[in-house]
Amino acid sequence: MRPQREYHIVVLGAGVPMRRAQFVQNVWIESYDPTIEDSYRKQIEVDGRQCILEILDTAGTEQFTAMRELYMKQGQGFLLVFSITSMSSLNELSELREQIIRIKDDENVPIVIVGNKSDLEEDRAVPRARAFGLSQKWGNAPYYETSARRRANVNEVFVDLCRQIIRKDSEGSRTSSDPNRKREGPNRHDRKRDNRRPRRRGPCVIL
C-alpha cells in the first residue's frame, strides 16, 4: 500500500453555485459550514490508492481577478465548472483555461470539464454537443455532467482528475529528462482512451 497522497484541486468557473459544497460532502448535508476542514478536504480511492484532495474553491471572489492566479498556482488539477443552464458560463471557461495553461506553462494540465446540472433538464441552455465540442478542442479534456441533488457523477469527476494528476506525476518522474513537449504524445493518447468512459457515461446518466 502506498502512502496517502495529497493533491490540490482548484475549482473554477464563475457564477456556478453548489460546487464545493456538493463535491466535497458525500451525503447531502443538512447544514453546510464552509469553514470546517471537512468542507474542503476529501478522501477518495483512485485505483486502489487512497488520495486526499484539498479542494480550493473561491466562489464569491470572482471579482478579485488578481487573486485568480494565486489560486491557479496552487492547483495540480482543475475542475472547470459551468452551468448547463447558462451558455455564457461555458464560454467563460475558455479564458480560465488559457490562464491556467499560461500560468502552469503546460498544455496538459489535468482538467475536467463539469457541466453542473440543476435538476431541471428543461432549463438546459448548453447542448451536450456543445460541451463535447469544447472537450475535444481542449485535447479531450473529460466532460461530466453532475447533479448536486442526486450526487450523480460527483465522485467520478474527482477520481478522473486525480488519476490524471497521478499519471502526470509518474510520467514526470519517468521522463524527467525529456523536454516538455515530448510528454504530450502518450499523454494525449492515454487520455483519449480514458476519456471514452466518462464521455460515454456522463451524458448517459439518467438524472
Binding site: M18, R19, R20, Q22, S31, A59, G60, T61, M67
Partner: peptide, 19 residues
C-alpha cells in the same frame, strides 16, 4: 474580504432555504 465572500457564498449555496 475574499474569505468572507467565499464563506458566504457557500453558506448560501450549500444550504437550502427550506427544511
Amino acid at each position: 474580504v475574499g474569505t468572507y465572500l467565499t464563506d458566504l457564498t457557500f453558506v448560501d449555496h450549500g444550504n437550502q432555504s427550506l427544511r
